[in-house]
Write a protein that binds this DNA or RNA. Structure first.
Lengths: 235, 235
DNA sequence: GTATGCATAATTGTATACAAAAGTATCGTC
DNA sequence: GACGATACTTTTGTATACAATTATGCATAC
């Protein structure tokens, strides 16, 4: 008997919300890539709003870790460092464990069905792999979090998941889905069976696998730390 | 061999940072109380900046859950509901457990000493109980989180702690410190002894106690002049 | 006394203007 | 051709202007 999920009604008017949603989607679907410059005028022109609006949106994305901002230099899509990536994954795992601990206490048949339908969607989207598949994989986790009934937890999970998109874009192969759908299915199955520990274990295993796929595969390929490169040539 | 703790370099220039810091401190020290109206003109006038700056600051505080904003109605100090309060405490406990799990693996003698010094500060501040005591109690947890070395985790703990100030202000006795210093000392002792489980247990017990103390009685309303309060925080 | 409309004031939402800073191109010197 | 100084362009930081919305006060009716 949860209250209807009220939307956070983010500060500014609905005008900025659509800009926010658009930019966020572009980042998460990896249309905008880490490092890309976000010039206020350009964005404002495309979305048909003034720089005032764009500015608030960029500040918000910056607070969520999706955008980097430097004084007098403007905004770019964030490029999380490897150590930051580890922090994100660790925190994400901590939060999602809690989500499953809560869920296995209170999950309803309705919830299970909704989760199962989502997994079906993922399977379908994966056949013609596109940007939608990436988004859906993340949204599975966000759905779980929102079903947990703890809004604060859900917001943090949401943030962690979207930041993972950036990490994937930086350190993993292009457009590799970060989630094996099989593992999602296992989580749903464990929840349906009412097996709390199995559900948490499945999530644990899943996120460890995601971390490995994301970071261990090609750390050296894409990410280059200028400092360490110079070190090799300084002597 | 961690990189030096870089500050988040929050989006906008240093102009807005001082307004942000001032408002935030006023909220955390409970000079501004939940429900108080935050008129953009008034704040801008007191801090000597234009509404543009104030607006970005309010949006930021809103994103952190310290300020409520409604379209065309403006901003007020947030009044977290009882259910939101529970969500915050639950999430906070989840995060702080992780902090201690990390810390007990890697804490140094230097860290311990810093924590011990902080507890001493708390003891001293508690003698002439003022707003500083409230702030210091929260900062103990923030210090723990920052020593954990996970910046993402630290940011979330920071947010949770400051939102707890609001909850305290709403549901607890005025200016009751949320933290018994004794319990802080126990955590430091457990860390010094290198006893990971004891440290986590101590934190667990502490936060449960905080939750109980927090959600006891109701607050009393007084008529306070926003302007004069802001003056104290505008420098 | 309480309620209802309307005029007025206060406040917010957004665009624009202008100054400061950063970036870029041009040119002369060596 | 490489380097550096200078003028010009672009972009950001902040204030202000103005329209739209909401709150307030006051008179009137019941």
């Amino acid at each position: 008997m949860n209250a209807p999920v009220r939307k956070p009604k983010s500060a500014a008017g609905s005008r900025s919300d659509s800009v926010y949603a658009g930019l966020r989607r572009a980042i998460i679907e990896q249309a905008l890539m880490p490092g890309d410059k976000l010039t206020e005028d350009v964005i404002g022109e495309r979305f048909g709003v003034s720089r005032t609006i764009v500015r608030t949106v960029l500040a918000r994305l910056n607070a969520e870790g999706l955008v980097d901002m430097q004084p007098n230099k403007g905004a770019t899509i964030a490029q999380p460092s490897l150590s930051e990536a580890h922090d994100v994954f660790e925190t994400r795992m901590c939060l999602e464990r809690q989500v499953l601990a809560r869920l296995s206490e209170k999950v309803t048949a309705d919830d299970i069905e909704r989760l199962q339908r989502h997994v079906q969607l993922e399977i379908k989207a994966n056949e013609h792999d596109g940007p939608a598949a990436i988004r859906l994989a993340g949204e599975f986790h966000i759905l779980l979090a929102s079903l947990s009934g703890n809004g604060v937890l859900a917001r943090y999970v949401d943030e962690m998941v979207s930041r993972c998109s950036l990490i994937l874009a930086l350190y993993s192969r292009p457009h590799s889905s970060d989630c094996s759908i099989n593992e999602h299915q296992q989580i749903v199955d464990a929840l349906r069976a009412g097996n709390s520990q199995a559900a948490i274990d499945a999530m644990d295993h899943h996120l460890k696998a995601v971390t490995d796929r994301a970071l261990l595969s090609s750390a050296a390929d894409k990410h280059r730390d200028i400092r360490s490169i110079l070190d090799r040539y300084a002597s």
